[in-house]
Amino acid sequence: MAVADLMVITFVVILYEIINAYFPHSFFNHTTICKCILTIIFISLDCSVWLTVAFTFDRFIAICHQMLRAKYCTEKNVSVVIAVVFCTSIVENIPYYFIYEPREVVNGVEWSCYVKSSFYTLPIWAAFLWLETILSPFAPYVLILLLNSLTIRHIILANRVRSGLRANNNTAKHTDPEMENRRKSIVLLLAISGSFILLWMVNLICYIYVQFTNMQFLEASYNDPFSIAELSGYMLNSLSSCTNTFIYAASQRKFREELKHVIKWPMALVAKVTNYIK
Rank of each mutant, 00 (worst) to 15 (best):
M1I: 07
M1N: 10
V3G: 08
V3Y: 12
A4E: 07
D5I: 05
L6W: 08
I9C: 07
I9A: 12
F11A: 03
V12N: 08
V13C: 12
V13F: 14
Y16M: 01
I18E: 04
N20D: 15
A21K: 14
F23S: 14
F27R: 08
N29G: 01
N29E: 15
H30S: 11
T32D: 09
T32Q: 09
T32S: 09
I33A: 13
F42I: 01
C47A: 10
F57E: 12
F57N: 09
I61E: 03
A62L: 06
A62V: 00
I63H: 05
Q66E: 13
L68T: 06
A70T: 15
A70R: 15
C73L: 08
E75C: 06
K76A: 14
K76D: 10
V78C: 11
S79I: 05
S79L: 12
V81T: 14
I82R: 14
A83E: 03
F86R: 09
S89L: 04
E92T: 13
I94A: 02
E101G: 05
R103M: 07
V105S: 00
V106C: 05
G108R: 04
S112D: 15
C113D: 04
F119R: 04
L122R: 02
L129T: 08
W130Q: 04
E132H: 13
T133A: 07
T133Y: 08
L135R: 01
F138R: 05
A139I: 15
P140A: 05
V142L: 13
I144M: 12
I144S: 01
L145N: 14
N148A: 10
L150R: 07
T151D: 09
I152W: 06
I155Y: 03
V161E: 09
S163L: 05
S163G: 01
G164R: 07
L165S: 02
R166N: 04
N169V: 04
K173T: 13
T175S: 13
M179I: 08
E180F: 07
V187W: 07
V187E: 11
A191H: 00
S195W: 01
I197L: 12
L198A: 15
L199Y: 04
W200D: 02
M201Y: 13
V202G: 02
L204T: 09
I208G: 00
Y209P: 00
V210P: 06
Q216T: 08
F217C: 02
A220N: 13
S221T: 11
Y222R: 05
F226Y: 10
S227D: 13
I228S: 02
A229K: 01
E230H: 03
G233C: 02
L236A: 10
L236Q: 07
S238I: 02
L239T: 04
L239R: 05
K254M: 09
F255Q: 03
F255D: 05
H261E: 11
K264A: 14
K264H: 13
A268P: 00
V270D: 13
A271D: 15
K272T: 11
T274I: 04
T274W: 04
N275C: 06
Y276L: 12
I277F: 13
